[in-house]
Design a binder for these strands. Structure first.
Length: 845
RNA sequence: GCGAGCGUGGCGAAACUGGUAGACGCAGCGGACUUAAAAUCCGUUCGCCGCAAGGCGGUGCGGGUUCAACUCCCGCCGCUCGCACCA
C-alpha cells in the first residue's frame, strides 16, 4: 500500500495530457456534430506571481470546461494576458527595468504557475494584449470606429496630476491628491479620444432583458449605470439685465441659446410649484457672472472645495448664491423666478441647470427653506385633503393628484406629465427628452505602456488617421522614464512623422488607449487568435460566439462588462462581427474571493502566514518571537501579505488539494476562507480516495459489462444506486454552479464505498469497482490528476479527462428521490429549478 | 438616502416546487491500533428532560397565511455589497 504521491502523479499526467493534445479546441470542421462550448475566465493582469486566491476563478472555469468536454462538447477554454497597464510603468520607474521585459517575465512566471494547476486550457490560443499582433487589430478597429463616428475627439474635464504630468482616473485620486505624487489634482480640459457608448444606450439597456443567464445584481447595476430617465428639456427666458451675448461668451452653448436657461426635469407636472431656477457652480452662465461678482466667484470656489467622498456628500449642506437675474415661468409670462447657482446641481448631468419645485423634491425643499423661497404644494397624496395638506420638512415625491396648478388640476401625476410637455411644446419652450447617466467613454491616456492611438496631428490637415497599411503603430522600445509625463511625448523621434495626407511635418498622437479597450474584445480574438489579416474571421467568431460561460469577479460588473457589450455592437456595425443576438456573453458567473486572516507584527508591519506561528490562542512572529496581532479576514492581497504562494502549496499538497479546497465548503459566489484545517480536510480526502482505489486492487467493470449475479440485490444494489444517484446529483450541482454541493455528494459516495466491505463477494466487488470508476469520473473536473491516476489504476482506458461514458449498465431503478435523473452522461440535461434561479433570473431590471 | 442581497449548530454550510431542519466538511468528544505519537479506522456531536424507548424546544425578533413555513406575506433589528445631491 503506497501513499498517493502527488509530486510524481501530477506532473506525469500533465505531461501525458500535453502529449495527447487533449485540450485543443477543434475547428468547426473537426468538431463535426459535436456542439461547441466556449467557456473562459477573466484574463489576468500579469502583475507578478499568482497565489492560491487567484486559483479559485480558474478552478471554477476548469470545472465547467472539463465537465462539458466529458459531455462531448467541442470546448474552447482559452487563456491570455491583460498585459498593458500602469504597474509595468511603475515597475520601470522603481526597478529600472523596461515595462516590456517586466511584463513578459511576469507572463512567463504566471503561465508556469497556471500550468501547475492542471487547467485544461488550450494554450495554442494564448494572447497578450501588449503584443503588436494583437493591438494592430485594435488599431484597425479604432480606425473603423472613427470612420463610423463611434470614436471622436472631445474636450473633456480630466483629473490632471501636475507633478506626474498625466491624467488620473477617478480611482487614482485620493482626497483630491494624486495617489503617486501626492500633488493636488487639478481639473483640466483636454482634447480626448472618446468612444460613443451613448449611441447604444437604449440597446445596451433593453438587451439586458435578454441576459437571462447573468446575475440579477449585475444586470441591475448595468441598468442603473446607464440610468435612463424620461422627462422634458425646456427653456426659461431670461428677463432683465442683458444676458451675455454669444459674441463675448460661450455661455449660451448647449444651454439653449443666449437669452434662455435650459433645464432638464423628470417632473414637468410640478411646474406650477416652481419657485426658483438653479445652475451648477460651473455652468457657463455662473462662470460668466462670477467674472463681475466676487460673491459668485467665492461661491464657486467654496462649492469646488467640497470633497467628493461619500461622507462629504452625505453631510454637505445645500447652499447657493442669488445670481441677480430673473426668468419667466414658461406657462405664465408675468411669473418671475429668481436664478441661483447651487452646489447640489451637477454640471455633468442633464443641462447643468434645474428648476426648483420644493414641495416635490427634498433637495429643492432644503434649499428653499434656507433661502426663504416659496413652497407651494402641487401634488396631493392619496387620501390627503387639499385644505389640510402641508409640506414642512419633508417633500412629497410620490404620485398623487395635481392641484394648485391651473390647467393640470385634477389630473394624476402620470397624466399631468405628458400634458405639461404638450403645453411646453405648444409654447415653443421645450420638448420631451430622454436623459442618460451613461456618458461616452474617454479612452485617451497619457501613458507609454498601452496601445498607441493610430492618429496623426497635422497643422494643415487636422487630425488624420494612420493609413491601415502602416499598422501597427508600434510602441518604441527605447524610452526613458527619467522625466515625469508620457515617455512617448519625450521620445526624440517617434512622434515626428509626415502627414499621410499632405506629406508635411506632422506629429503622432502620443496618447495610448485605456487598457479597458484591450479587454473589450479579447473574447472574440480567442476564436481566431493567430489571424494576421483581420482581428478574427467572421465565420469562426460566429461559430464560437456568444461565449457560453464567463467566470470572473463582480468588481467588473459594470465597466469591463459594459464595454465588452459596447464593443460587440460597434464591431458588428463596423462589419467585423456577425452576432445576431448582439450579446457576446451568454452566461456570466461572478465568483467570490478567497480570504485569509491578516497578521500585524508588534512593529505594525503586515506579516505573511509563513512568517508566523499560529496556535489556537494566538500567533507569534517566527523571527522575533513576539506576539502578533490577528486582524480581519480579508481578500488575499499582496499589500496585506495574507497570501499563500501557489508554488509552495502545490509542492507540499498538490494542485488537486488546492482546487478541491477552494471549491468546497462555500458556495462559489460567496467568499471562502482559506484555513489550514480546511486544507487538511481536502488532503485527507485525496488520500482516502486513493486508499480505496488501491484497496480495491482490481479492474473496474468495462463499459457494457454485464453485472454478475447478486449485483442487483442487497448491499451491492444499494451501493450501485448510491453511485448512480451521485452521478445525477453531481451533474445537477455542476450545472447549477453549486460546486460545494458537488463536493459534498462526492464525500457521500466515498463514505458509501468505504462502508461496503466484502472483498470476496463478486457482486460487491463489481459494485465497488463501478462506484470507484464513477467516483473518478465525477471528481475529474475538480481533481483531474487524482482522477486520472485512479482511472488508470482501475484499468480503464486513458483519459478520464475526455471519457464520455462509463456506466456498464444501470441498476434496476427503485423509487428514489430523483427518479428522473438516471442518465449518467451524454445528452443535454437541464438544471434543477433552483440551479436555474442561481444562474438566471426571470426578473427584469 | 436609493437599490440589491443575506441572517440556520462551536465554525464553513445543506435543505431542489411549502413537506423528516442541520446533508457534507472542519473543530470537539469517546474508542481501536501503537511502547508512545503522527497517520488511519470506528463511534458520537443543535439544546433541554430521560438509563432507555421517547418527549419537548429550536432557522435574527414580532405577527400572519397554511394540514404543514428556514422557505410565502406584513412590520422591526442586524450585517454585506453596489450607486450616490442624476433633477
Amino acid at each position: 500500500m503506497s501513499r498517493y504521491n502527488h509530486r510524481e502523479v501530477e506532473p506525469k499526467w500533465r505531461e501525458a495530457w500535453g502529449r495527447a493534445d487533449l485540450y485543443r479546441a477543434l475547428s468547426p470542421e473537426e468538431a463535426g456534430d459535436r456542439p461547441k462550448y466556449y467557456t473562459f475566465e477573466m484574463f489576468p493582469y500579469p502583475s507578478g506571481r499568482i497565489h492560491v486566491g487567484h486559483s479559485r476563478n480558474y478552478a471554477m472555469g476548469d470545472v465547467v470546461a472539463r465537465y462539458r468536454r466529458a459531455k462531448g462538447y467541442n470546448v474552447l477554454h482559452p487563456m491570455g494576458w491583460d498585459a498593458f497597464g500602469l504597474p509595468a510603468e511603475n515597475a520601470a520607474i522603481e526597478r529600472k527595468t523596461h515595462p516590456k521585459a517586466w511584463t513578459y517575465e511576469n507572463i512567463a512566471a504566471m503561465k508556469s504557475q497556471l500550468q501547475l494547476l492542471g487547467l485544461s486550457l488550450d494554450w495554442s490560443r494564448e494572447i497578450a494584449t501588449c503584443d503588436p499582433s494583437y493591438y494592430k487589430h485594435q488599431q484597425a478597429m479604432f480606425l473603423a470606429f472613427w470612420k463610423k463616428g463611434l470614436a471622436y475627439r472631445k474636450k473633456q474635464k480630466v483629473n490632471w496630476d501636475p507633478v506626474d504630468q498625466t491624467v488620473l482616473a477617478n480611482e487614482q485620486v485620493e482626497d483630491g491628491r494624486g495617489w503617486r505624487s501626492g500633488a493636488l489634482v487639478e481639473t483640466r480640459e483636454l482634447e480626448q479620444w472618446v468612444f460613443r457608448v451613448t449611441a447604444y444606450a437604449d440597446d445596451l439597456l433593453d438587451a439586458i432583458a435578454t441576459l437571462d443567464k447573468w446575475p440579477d445584481k449585475v444586470r441591475l447595476m448595468q441598468a442603473n449605470w446607464i440610468g435612463k430617465s424620461q422627462g422634458a428639456k425646456f427653456r426659461f427666458e431670461i428677463i432683465g439685465p442683458p444676458a451675455p451675448s454669444p459674441a463675448t461668451t460661450s455661455a449660451g452653448e448647449g444651454a439653449g441659446g443666449p437669452n434662455t436657461i435650459e433645464v432638464f426635469t423628470t417632473r414637468p407636472d410640478t411646474l406650477f410649484g416652481a419657485s426658483f431656477v438653479a445652475l451648477a457652480p460651473d455652468h457657463p452662465l455662473t462662470k460668466k457672472i462670477a467674472a463681475d461678482r466676487k460673491d459668485v466667484a467665492d461661491f464657486i470656489a467654496k462649492a469646488g472645495q467640497l470633497g467628493t467622498s461619500e461622507a462629504d456628500i452625505e453631510k454637505a449642506e445645500k447652499f447657493g448664491v442669488n445670481l441677480g437675474i430673473k426668468v419667466r415661468h414658461p406657462f405664465d409670462e408675468s411669473w418671475e423666478l429668481p436664478v441661483y447657482a447651487a452646489n447640489f446641481v451637477l454640471s455633468t448631468y442633464g443641462t447643468g441647470a434645474i428648476f426648483g419645485s420644493p414641495a416635490g423634491d427634498q433637495r429643492d425643499l432644503d434649499f428653499a427653506r434656507k433661502y426663504g423661497l416659496p413652497v407651494q404644494p402641487v401634488v396631493l397624496p392619496p387620501g390627503a385633503a387639499a385644505a389640510t395638506h402641508v409640506i414642512e420638512k419633508e417633500a412629497y415625491v410620490g404620485d398623487g393628484v395635481i392641484y394648485n396648478s391651473r390647467f393640470l388640476d385634477g389630473h394624476t401625476t402620470k397624466e399631468a406629465i405628458p400634458l405639461a410637455i404638450a403645453e411646453l411644446k405648444k409654447r415653443g419652450a421645450g420638448e420631451a427628452t430622454t436623459q442618460y447617466r451613461l456618458r461616452d467613454w474617454g479612452v485617451s491616456r497619457q501613458r507609454y505602456w498601452g496601445c498607441p492611438i493610430p492618429a496623426i496631428h497635422c497643422a494643415k490637415c487636422g487630425v488624420v488617421p494612420v493609413p491601415e497599411k502602416d499598422l501597427p503603430v508600434a510602441l518604441p522600445d527605447d524610452v526613458s522614464f527619467d522625466k515625469p509625463g508620457n515617455p512617448l511625448e519625450h521620445h526624440p523621434t517617434w512622434k515626428h512623422v509626415a502627414c499621410p495626407q499632405c506629406g508635411g511635418e506632422a506629429k503622432r498622437e502620443t496618447d495610448t488607449l485605456d487598457t479597458f479597450v484591450d479587454s473589450s474584445w479579447y473574447y472574440a480574438r480567442y476564436t481566431d487568435p493567430t489571424n494576421e489579416a483581420q482581428p478574427f474571421d467572421k465565420k469562426l467568431a460566429a461559430y464560437w460566439l456568444p461565449a457560453d460561460q464567463y467566470v470572473g469577479g463582480v468588481e467588473h460588473a459594470v465597466l469591463h462588462l459594459l464595454y465588452a457589450r459596447f464593443f460587440a455592437r460597434a464591431m458588428r456595425d463596423c462589419g467585423f462581427l456577425d452576432l445576431p443576438g448582439g450579446e457576446p456573453i451568454a452566461s456570466l458567473f461572478t465568483q467570490g474571493m478567497v480570504t485569509h486572516e491578516t497578521y500585524k507584527s508588534a512593529a505594525g508591519k503586515w506579516l505573511g502566514p509563513e512568517e508566523i506561528e499560529r496556535t489556537a490562542a494566538g500567533a507569534t512572529e517566527l523571527a522575533t518571537k513576539q506576539a502578533v496581532e490577528i486582524g480581519q479576514i480579508e481578500k488575499m492581497s499582496k499589500s496585506k501579505k495574507n497570501v499563500i504562494d501557489l508554488d509552495a502549496f502545490v509542492t507540499e499538497y498538490g494542485a488537486d488539494v488546492a482546487r478541491w479546497f477552494v471549491l468546497s465548503d462555500s458556495p462559489p459566489e460567496r467568499d471562502v476562507e482559506w484555513t489550514d484545517a480546511g486544507v487538511q480536510g481536502a488532503w485527507r480526502f485525496v488520500q482516502r480516495v486513493w486508499t480505496l482505489v488501491e484497496e480495491h486492487n482490481a479492474p473496474a467493470p468495462k463499459p457494457g459489462q454485464a453485472p454478475p449475479p447478486g449485483a442487483n440485490e442487497g448491499e451491492a444494489l444499494a451501493l450501485r444506486q448510491t453511485a448512480h444517484r451521485t452521478i445525477a446529483a453531481v451533474t445537477d450541482a455542476i450545472e447549477g454552479f453549486r460546486f460545494n454541493g458537488a463536493v459534498a455528494k462526492c464525500y457521500e459516495l466515498v463514505n458509501a464505498i468505504a462502508k461496503a466491505k466484502g472483498a470476496n463477494d463478486p457482486a460487491l466487488m463489481f459494485a465497488r469497482g463501478e462506484a470507484l470508476a464513477i467516483l473518478a469520473q465525477l471528481i475529474a473536473p475538480f481533481m483531474p490528476h487524482l482522477a486520472e491516476e485512479a482511472w488508470s489504476k482501475l484499468g480503464l482506458e486513458p483519459f478520464v479527462a475526455v471519457a464520455r461514458h462509463l456506466i456498464p449498465s444501470s441498476p434496476p431503478s427503485t423509487p428514489s428521490p430523483c427518479p428522473s435523473r438516471s442518465t449518467a452522461s451524454g445528452g443535454a440535461k437541464s438544471a434543477s429549478p433552483r440551479a436555474r434561479r442561481r444562474q438566471k433570473s426571470a426578473k427584469k431590471p
